[in-house]
Simulated assay, not measured.
Amino acid sequence: MSRAFVFPGQGAQTIGMGRALAEGWSAARAVFDEVDEALGEKLSTLIWEGELEELTLTRNAQPALMATSIAALRALEAEGFDLVGTADFLAGHSLGEYSALCAAQSLSLADTARLLRIRGEAMQEAVPVGLGAMAALLGLDFQAASEVAHEAAQGEVCQAANDNDPGQVVVSGHRGAVERAVEIAKARGAKRALMLPVSAPFHCALMQPAAARMAEALAAVVIRDPLVPVVANVSAEAVRDSSKVQDLLVAQVTGSVRWRESVLWMESAGVTEFWEVGAGKALSGMIRRIAREAVTKPVGTPADIEALKA
């Protein structure tokens, strides 16, 4: 049996996430302490006691979700689940790719926290509020959604941004173009097409200013070969060489998240079990729709870790 650890992206955040892990394992608590120190603020207080609206801000949600994932991983390791011995591949959805690289020790925890703070701010600032939008097209595959986006663009930006599973694709771009995509998708037979409550149009060409900032930020940190191969969002195949990581992370800012293809790649490489490390269970739902024979297991609470031990 081959196993992959997968790390969630934005949208999985909840107030209180990771607190029970920090209370149960000193190694998990140390993760939140180190992230607080790296950012020069008490992000952990916001995560555990703050307002969801503030936690959901991109600049906060990205490092917070990564910290929760790495805390869960440290708790898992404290119970004898060694990363190299337990996982054959790692992957993450959008910001989750940074969590995966941190888990693989390709990026240090402090650097990952600071990079995600920069990434969150850069993505938020790349497009004036209200100019961009994203929409979920349900019941259309990636090819059909790409055709809808192309037709809707009409000289503006509209791209298929997230290929989440066989029946869920997210498009991103200028608000007017995305609104046109919703109507075109409905006419093309989409089960549902709805605008998403996001603050910026992620993973499309409008994010180019953010990509430039991430290229600069990534050039300033040490990137090592990952201890476990990491399946990259934009290539949908495993990366083992540190020299490729920077370019893939920069391309990810404006490129499509090829999650469906990433899961299929891991399945073709023999993965039969996926452990979702961190907050929520959204990736597990997607994975079961992509690889129907796959087993998924959550790793986000002390109860989850006890269940794995049992």
Rank of each mutant, 00 (worst) to 15 (best):
153 A>W: 02
57 L>F: 14
291 A>V: 04
46 L>M: 10
266 M>R: 11
142 F>S: 14
172 S>K: 01
172 S>M: 02
143 Q>I: 05
124 Q>G: 13
148 V>W: 05
50 G>N: 08
226 P>S: 09
4 A>M: 13
201 P>I: 05
199 S>R: 05
198 V>W: 00
275 W>I: 06
74 R>K: 14
291 A>Y: 09
13 Q>M: 11
274 F>L: 06
204 C>V: 11
264 L>D: 12
300 G>H: 10
50 G>M: 03
235 S>M: 07
38 A>P: 12
204 C>E: 04
63 P>F: 00
79 E>G: 11
298 P>L: 04
282 A>M: 05
189 G>R: 06
83 L>C: 06
163 D>N: 07
193 A>K: 05
242 S>Y: 03
85 G>Q: 12
198 V>Q: 13
47 I>Y: 04
180 R>M: 08
139 G>A: 14
108 S>G: 05
104 A>F: 08
173 G>V: 09
135 A>N: 00
96 G>W: 02
216 E>F: 09
129 V>F: 04
105 Q>I: 01
287 I>C: 03
263 V>L: 13
193 A>E: 14
13 Q>E: 01
144 A>D: 01
35 V>G: 08
153 A>D: 03
250 V>S: 01
298 P>A: 13
240 R>S: 11
18 G>R: 04
295 V>K: 15
196 L>K: 05
